[in-house]
Amino acid sequence: MAKGSIKKSEETKFDELNMTPMIDVIFQLMIFFMCSIHFKSLEGKLYSYLPRDKGMLSTTVTDPILEEVRIKLAYSESAPLLTRIKVGEREFPDWDTLFNHMRGLKDSLVTSSGDVIPVKIDADEKIPVQSVVNALNICKKAGVQKTEFAAKTSAPPKK
């Protein structure tokens, strides 16, 4: 039996603590945690709850709307990245002026009885999501309490 041939080298080589595997493991763990933490901190969200009591299938709203604020976002074929922003008849050149307008408007969106008038975001189908999120973002920042997305009314369901 080959017994004594490696004895000497074992004694001299493996007596001291080998740090390499531990360092490897620590690096692996570091890489794993760095990756996972990075993924988690990337994203946020904007709450945009649909009206609970009047879904898409409900009947049309018959209550008179006293005052409606509608942010219209229009698409133009010639400049697809430039969104035309309108509130009523007034056109806004950029998002900052819309923000100032909405900030000035927010108090008038609460009636004396405490009801909150929602701001409707009415965007063309082709508008990039970023523009709609900009409008939503501005409403949140300006302190608007309720925002809704305007929906195109389709033909009444067949009975």
Binding site: G44, L46, Y47, Y49, L50, G55, V133, N137
Partner: peptide, 13 residues
């Protein structure tokens, strides 16, 4: 809306 799901969150960065 058809599914009566109302808690909508829109992902943003």
């Amino acid at each position: 809306g058809k599914a009566l799901v109302w808690k909508i969150e829109i992902g943003a960065e």
